[in-house]
Design a protein around this nucleic acid. Structure first.
Lengths: 206, 206
DNA sequence: TCAAGTAATTTTGTAACAATAATCAAAAAA
DNA sequence: TTTTTTGATTATTGTTACAAAATTACTTGA
């Protein structure tokens, strides 16, 4: 034929658009919705798409905040977790851990064999959200740092406080209650003092 | 032919399904959504459908359910629990004499298939110990009572507040923050309002 | 008159389609 | 050789189409 077949190559294996290059960076599907709610849902999805976009950028930004290795996968319950910051009428899973399911045990407890619970007694730690009756999660082996919430024993009494340091280097235990009802506890040389663990979390029932 | 044309009438004007007899009592359309968000959206739509249904019967103050999600098996960890009352003796959290053992999942979650979590956003509930970032445990089916902490949806926005009643019987949502930065939310007839569940507990990591 | 059968019509979840977008590799140009 | 262009290939995405189910009305036989 007259046309001299200026073809540009033949097979192009591996070519073509890549998966995950869409708006949401994931698989999509089609659902039917009431028309009046369509704008609500689309605005929700816009927010979601934005979050996905940002999270990808962040991923490419060299993860700084990643000390702490993954704990070995154990538990597997996981209930739905929604972030309640809702742009437009839907529980927005966008933000942080997204729509992930969550297992409280797994979330809260790192090393089961080094962990125990204590019941909070007074109101001295109320400003970090520890109310009387709350269960504090204490991890025994964790090295306490200044600023950590710790379970300490002072002369045989246990208490949960914030660990700080005095000028002379001795430890100091601070309450988290600005009412003035609680005072810092200054640890002196002759006192019996020990830190039993670091409070890594808490939980409560209403 | 053998068949003697047993026709059952001809025209049936006015027959057929009536418009507006669908789930949402309105027109629908089709949209494409990220698959991972499909359950979130369908949950929302179920609630919406229910609302449409109820609005025909002129009901008020209903609790909306439907968040259904598949639970697995609960991971059970039972760890020692100490009442930090702590008698002078030295308990050894590591082993031995333990007050009781406790599994946070078991302690916190009553009906796994009716439970989900939301992340607390603002400081409006700080005085009941709900701090930003805390995970609130929401139970769907629980009948909300005055005084309960509930997850409510108002005109498409979600919020966690204390349920109360106005003098005229309409519901009212109270913050738990006396700083004055947050005001009670008065629910009026024309507002979209639904209670999605009762907050039965919370947990956090430090 | 009543029950069962048939027709008419809407709803609804999903498949299919076509236009667009993204990506790769060969070809052409520099 | 290096860069740019071009075409091929495949994914995404909004919309349409379709078939099964649902709902209502009408007709007919008992």
């Amino acid at each position: 034929m007259s046309d001299e077949d200026k073809k540009h190559g033949g097979k192009r294996t591996g070519s073509g658009r890549k998966v995950g290059t869409g708006l949401y960076k994931e698989d999509t599907s089609v659902i039917r919705v009431p028309t009046s709610q369509k704008p609500v849902i689309t605005s929700f999805l816009e927010a979601y798409a934005k979050k996905q976009r940002l999270s990808q950028i962040k991923e490419n930004l060299d993860s700084i905040d990643e000390f702490a290795q993954l704990p070995e996968a154990l538990a597997s319950i996981s209930l739905p977790l929604y972030q309640s910051k809702v742009p437009a009428g839907l529980p927005s899973p966008a933000d942080g851990d997204v729509d992930s399911r969550m297992d409280p045990n797994e979330y809260l407890i790192n090393k089961a064999d080094k962990t125990f619970f204590v019941t909070i007694q007074g109101e001295s730690m109320i400003e970090v959200g520890l109310m009387p009756g709350d269960k504090a999660i204490v991890e025994k082996d964790k090295v306490p740092a200044v600023g950590d919430i710790v379970l300490a024993m002072i002369d045989g009494e246990f208490t949960v406080k914030i660990l700080a340091k005095q000028k002379d280097g001795h430890p100091k235990l601070l309450p988290a209650n600005s009412s003035g009802k609680y005072s810092p506890i200054l640890i002196e040389g002759q006192m019996q003092f020990a830190i039993w663990g670091v409070v890594t979390g808490s939980f409560r029932k209403f």
